[in-house]
Each structure stands twice: as C-alpha cells, then as structure tokens.
Simulated scan of single mutants.
Amino acid sequence: MTELLFRLDPYGHDAQGTVLSSTPEGIVLDRTLFYPRAGGQPGDSGTLRWGTEAGFTHADITEATKGPDGNVLHVPAKGAELPPVGSAVIASLDWNRRHRHMRMHTALHLLCAVMPGIYATGNQIGAEKSRLDFDLPEPPTKEWLTERLNALIAADHKVSERWITEAELDANPGLVRTLSVQPPRGAGQIRLVCIGPEDLPVDLQPCGGTHVRSTGEIGGVEVTKLESKGRQNRRVTLVLKD
C-alpha cells in the first residue's frame, strides 16, 4: 500500500517516491503527499519529476484518486510522458490549491459546530467555494452563520487528531455528524479530528481529510447562499474572503 505522507505532515510540499506502476490511468508510488479524492475533498494536483542532473522530465498530475486496491493513483494529464517503473520521482503539490482545501475543510467542521445536533446530509469542498447540506427545516440566516463562523475562526482554536477503535466509535455513534459519508472501516482504527481542547472540543468527529493547524489560519469566511434541496434539506455555501 502507498504510504500516506499527508497523514504525517499535511504541510509537506514535495516528497521523493519510487514508481510501483505507471499507466495513463494512474501512477502509483510507494509513498506520496497527494491526498486522493474522498469524503467530499478533491484529490490533489501537481507534478511528478524524474531524471538526472543532465535533464529532468515531468508529468502534470490532474488529480489523485483511490485505486481499486486502495493505493493512490496520480492521474497524469492526457498525453503526458510516464515515469518508468522503479524510477525515483519528486512529487510536488499544487500547494496553494491544497492549502485552500485545508482551510475550507476546517471551516466546514466549524459550520457543523455552530449547528449542534444537526446532521449533514452532503458536502463538497472546493478551492473557490464549499458547501454542506443539513437535515434542517429552517436554517439560521446567512448573517448569523457568518458571524459565528468568524468568531470561532478568530478564537484560533487548535486543530488536532487522535485515533480510536471501531468498537469505541460504535459505543459513541453521536461522533458521526454526516449521513452521506461514513468513516472508512476495516483497518480497526478511526481517525478523529478535534477542534479546541480535548476536554471541551468545539468540534469532534471522524474525518480522513486534511486540515489546518488552527482555526485562525482559515482567515475570514462568508456564507453566501442558503438553498432548499428538499422538504428539510438545506444547502449552506461558503467562500473564503481571500
């Protein structure tokens, strides 16, 4: 299995890896910083570079996805040259895009926090805008949500993670706040993302995505749209202010 370096350091920009397989459908490395599309968060994009001092070749990577065997597929741009199997490559993220995803993803956790007890029914993270759908007949106003989100951001709460067993999650099902995306099972452990102090968290829920170190790093946000998507389903769209 691909070693997931973004689990150890979501702030890494570049990392060396060895090519395990190489096809136009996707390049598999033994280790990668690229987050594969999952849980509403887009897969990372960037480049792979290989060669010697005499000359380097590179391939643009349009997105990282999960392969059928669970490995990370680095999907090359159409017509890109492919690195040979066994070669060493430098994988470089489109860092600005990834960092915006991290800020957005953390902001969506805060959006859950300002509506405790309300389940999310769908989500989508983007670099320009993101949204959460809620099982909620009458949502608060855009202004109310924007004000409370920015207050939590300004408080600069620490973002941390820890792991629990699947049995511990089964004993505390209220940790799961989303109806559309369930925590991946089978590995025996579930990753929890905690915003705020462990003894009194602002938000605590299973999540496999990438996040910023503290809420202050998100910067200002604005809730720009509230939409009805069914009898009780309400869509909340937000954007970063910079």
Rank of each mutant, 00 (worst) to 15 (best):
A64F: 05
H99D: 14
G79H: 06
P68R: 13
A80Q: 09
A15Q: 06
A54K: 15
T52Q: 09
G79E: 01
D69N: 08
A59K: 07
G126D: 03
A77E: 13
G122S: 04
Q41L: 06
L33I: 15
S87A: 12
F56M: 07
T106W: 09
G126H: 00
G51Q: 12
T57R: 08
E63L: 13
L93G: 02
G67C: 14
D133T: 01
P83Q: 05
G46C: 14
D94Q: 02
G70D: 10
A54T: 15
D30Q: 06
L48M: 07
H101Y: 13
L20R: 14
T65D: 13
E53F: 14
T32C: 14
H101G: 00
R100F: 00
L29Y: 05
A120M: 11
L29Q: 06
I118G: 03
I90G: 06
C112T: 12
L20Q: 15
T106V: 01
G126S: 07
P42A: 13
S22Y: 01
V75R: 02
V19Y: 00
R103N: 07
W50Y: 12
R103M: 08
P116E: 05
A80S: 11
G117K: 06
G43E: 13
V72I: 14
T65A: 12
G51N: 12
P36Q: 05
S87M: 01
R131V: 01
T32A: 09
V72D: 07
P68V: 06
G46V: 10
G86S: 08
T121F: 08
D44I: 04
T62E: 13
A88F: 08
G17T: 11
M115D: 10
A54F: 03
N96S: 09
V89D: 07
P76F: 07
A15P: 00
A120G: 13
E63A: 08
L73D: 04
W50R: 11
Q41W: 07
D133E: 05
H109L: 00
E53C: 14
T121G: 12
H58K: 15
G26H: 04
R31Q: 12
L48E: 05
I118H: 08
